[in-house]
Amino acid sequence: MPLIATLPEDVDAAFLAAALDLDAAPSDLRVSPVGTGQMGTCVRAAWTGSGGDARSVLVKLPAADPAARALVAGAYATEVRFYTELAPTLAVRVPTCHLAALGDDGAFTLVLEDLAPRVQGDQIAGSTAAQARAAAVNLAGLHGPRWCDPSLEDVEGLGAATAEDAAMLAELYGPTTDLFLDAVGDLLTTEDAATLRACGAVIADWSLARPERFAPVHGDYRLDNLLFAPPEQPDLDVVAVDWQTVSRGLPARDLAYLLGTGLEPTLRARVERDIVEAYRIALGTHGVDLDTFTAEQAWDDYRLAMLQGPLVTVFGCAYGTRTERGDRMFAAMASRSAAAIRALGSLELVAHPA
């Protein structure tokens, strides 16, 4: 039987002793909530170790409501598979996983490294150039080790997009964009709204473009899913979390999404070429042939991939639980992405590939 905790109260001393193979169950365990958890719950478990040292882990739990849990069971399974099957073969910095368990009823439990004192990125405020560069270099550790690896087809849930998938996306994108603009359109310019709508004409072709280059992609590699070093400990590495949307696709989608949604347009225009090249050079350290994947190709992929921003933003806002912060966040992401798409000629590149 897998070791599953469903509710915060299930994260007790006996559970932690079994999950972490402790010599003795903690006697001073303290469990506290972390974040708001739209798809589940996350708690921090802290205690004093046998040597008197302070210890803590984060525990991710499923939605408490079985009906809600069933709706997102696929995402839970994806994250468990990432930690058990993919992460050991990659070089991207992620939390150390002490336990990854999946139940028959769609429940799951992850016991992960506590990443404090790192701090979560702020999607609304945007990132600095240094943060974006560090996150891009870390991203190369996700893509490079399994770059164009045909054995990815053997990983459940990592199938390539099909023509049927593309047709469904094209059918849904327009109505979903309407829902999105009804929700947050007053926070966007008319020009940005027009750019989001224009993506619908090419979104099917875009979703199938350049299948010759693929790797595991995070799918939602943005600031809120990245933890950065605090000012007092600048040498700490960037860590990526929330691996429930992993798929197989064009690697540049993650990079374009990171920079397109996270950098203010003026800053992005100034630093993006250097960051794209830093990412490409980092890929080379993970085995990618840079004579084949040239700087020109990396830049071209980046330009084309910029539609990842509107795609995730529109669907995430339209079908997620709305909050005041969420509306502002999605509006900022959409506005920055739309500006990048116009500046880089992404729509024209998809519509008229070389």
Rank of each mutant, 00 (worst) to 15 (best):
G200V: 11
A132G: 11
P95E: 06
T294W: 01
L179R: 15
D301H: 15
D154S: 15
V314L: 13
L22N: 08
L102M: 08
D53M: 01
S247K: 05
V312E: 08
G40N: 05
T321P: 06
R303E: 06
D28I: 02
T292D: 13
E296H: 13
G316N: 14
E9H: 10
V59P: 03
P66T: 01
L139G: 04
L188R: 02
P251V: 12
P2L: 01
L349F: 06
E348R: 12
A295L: 14
Q123C: 14
E348H: 09
A318S: 11
T294D: 02
V31M: 03
D182W: 02
D165M: 01
A252W: 10
A298G: 04
A17G: 08
L169K: 10
A116G: 10
T245I: 08
L142R: 04
A101K: 02
F180V: 00
A19C: 02
I203E: 14
T245P: 11
L158N: 07
G49T: 09
G103K: 00
S151A: 13
G159I: 04
L99G: 04
A54C: 04
V137C: 03
D12E: 11
V276P: 01
A17E: 11
T48C: 05
A135H: 09
S335T: 08
A338Q: 00
A77G: 08
R133V: 08
L223P: 11
S335C: 03
M329I: 06
L181M: 02
C317Q: 14
A278S: 07
A25I: 06
A107L: 00
D65N: 13
L250F: 00
R81W: 04
Q308N: 15
A201D: 12
C199W: 03
V217N: 07
A77K: 09
V34W: 01
